[in-house]
């Protein structure tokens, strides 16, 4: 359902991605593994349209989306959760959710604030709290909840375990599994093998902007540890 081929991207003069190709099939969790600077974040940003690819194609349900603006891609049902959370700290929890809100979508789970508060009980207890007054773990939950308000069919998660205490990471594993059972397709960037192993159906190893291996997580494990 999400298919990337021949993807090339650059920041200014620095060429970051070289002919990347991979896919995430409907209802599965695919993981891009790679160290910092390998190009994982750039890959996700190219898919959502924040970074404009130099070349290559991104197909979402068979439709090319690489030439669209981020808001158009988001409105097709691609959700994006950035690495550094980027909560609107001046807005309350409810207002943050409002920014993400989009009309219900055919073939995607429907989310309401009430349903999200079941998934993230912490958030339900702080609906009027400003984003600035939340802990790192709470912000990470909010950034996912905010994206789900758009009723996406696929969600891109950039290093959701980064900087979180191990107990919160365990909670994150449960959340991603729950999203998968709801029928969402998840594309995940990770460096943390322990974490990736617990959620991934399919894995790709990226190094210096190039694909180095693909398969199940156990199959690519060796390659990842060598990069």
């Amino acid at each position: 359902m999400l298919e990337v081929s021949g993807l090339n991207a650059a920041y200014g003069r620095a060429h970051i991605l070289f002919d990347l190709a991979f896919e995430a099939r409907a209802g599965e969790v695919a993981v891009l593994l790679g160290r910092n600077g390998a190009g994982k974040s750039t890959t996700l940003k190219s898919i959502i349209g924040i970074v404009r690819p130099l070349a290559g194609e991104v197909h979402f349900f068979g439709r090319p989306i690489q030439h669209l603006q981020p808001y158009q891609i988001a409105r097709l049902g691609v959700g994006y959760v950035p690495e550094d959370r980027r909560i609107f700290t001046d807005l309350t929890v409810m207002e943050n959710l409002e920014i993400g809100r989009q009309p219900p979508r055919e073939g995607a789970p429907r989310w309401t604030p009430a349903k999200l508060f079941e998934l993230f009980p912490n958030l339900g207890r702080m609906q009027d709290r400003l984003g600035a007054r939340m802990s790192g773990g709470e912000q990470q939950m909010l950034t996912i909840a905010r994206t789900l308000m758009g009723n996406p069919r696929a969600i891109l998660l950039d290093e959701p375990s980064e900087g979180l205490a191990p107990v919160i990471v365990e909670q994150m594993v449960r959340t991603i599994r729950e999203l998968k059972t709801q029928g969402l397709t998840v594309l995940l960037c990770e460096q943390n093998l322990h974490f990736a192993r617990q959620v991934a159906d399919r894995a790709y190893v990226i190094e210096k902007g190039q694909l180095r291996g693909s398969g199940t997580l156990d199959e690519v494990r060796e390659e990842y540890q060598q990069v």
Partner: peptide
């Protein structure tokens, strides 16, 4: 207004959430 306040803080993120900037 909520969209304006969000875009004031991080317009790129607002765009990635489907807001037509």
């Amino acid at each position: 207004g909520t969209l304006v306040r969000a875009a004031t803080q991080d317009r790129e993120m607002a765009g990635a959430l489907g807001v037509n900037q």
